[in-house]
C-alpha cells in the first residue's frame, strides 16, 4: 500500500508531495497507517468550504492498495472528510515519507 499526500497553496504557493510506502515500514508503523486509512472516508464530492480563500492549503489524498486499486479525495483546508486530517498529518509530519517540492 502507498499513501500519497499533495499539499499546495499557502503563502508560499509551493506544492509539497509526500509518499509513504507501507512496504518500507516496521510492523508498528504499518499498523498505525492501516488503521488511519481504514478510518478515512473518501467521498467523491467532498465539501469545498474554503476553496478560493487566499493562501489556505488545498489537499489531494490518494491510497493505492497492493492490488492496484486507488482511492482518492481532494479538499480544502478546514473541509477534510472524516479521518483525512489525521491521516494527512501522519504522512506529512511523520518520519516515514519521501518528500518532494515542485509541481510535477
Amino acid at each position: 500500500m502507498k499513501v500519497t499526500v499533495v499539499r499546495a497553496g499557502g503563502v508560499a504557493g509551493m506544492v509539497l508531495t509526500v509518499e509513504v510506502d507501507a512496504g518500507e515500514l516496521d510492523a508498528e508503523a504499518t499498523a498505525q497507517l492501516t488503521g488511519l486509512v481504514d478510518a478515512c472516508e473518501f467521498p467523491e464530492t467532498p465539501p469545498a468550504a474554503t476553496k478560493g480563500r487566499a493562501d489556505t492549503f488545498d489537499y489531494e489524498l490518494a491510497v493505492e492498495r497492493d492490488d492496484g486499486a486507488v482511492r482518492r479525495t481532494r479538499f480544502g483546508q478546514g473541509a477534510a472528510p472524516p479521518g483525512a486530517d489525521a491521516l494527512v498529518a501522519w504522512v506529512l509530519d511523520g518520519p516515514h515519507g519521501h518528500r518532494h517540492v515542485g509541481r510535477w
Partner: peptide
Amino acid sequence: DDDPRNDNGGVHINS
C-alpha cells in the same frame, strides 16, 4: 479545478 497542483488556475505561479 479541484486539483491542488493547478493552484486555482496558477494564482501563485503567474503572479
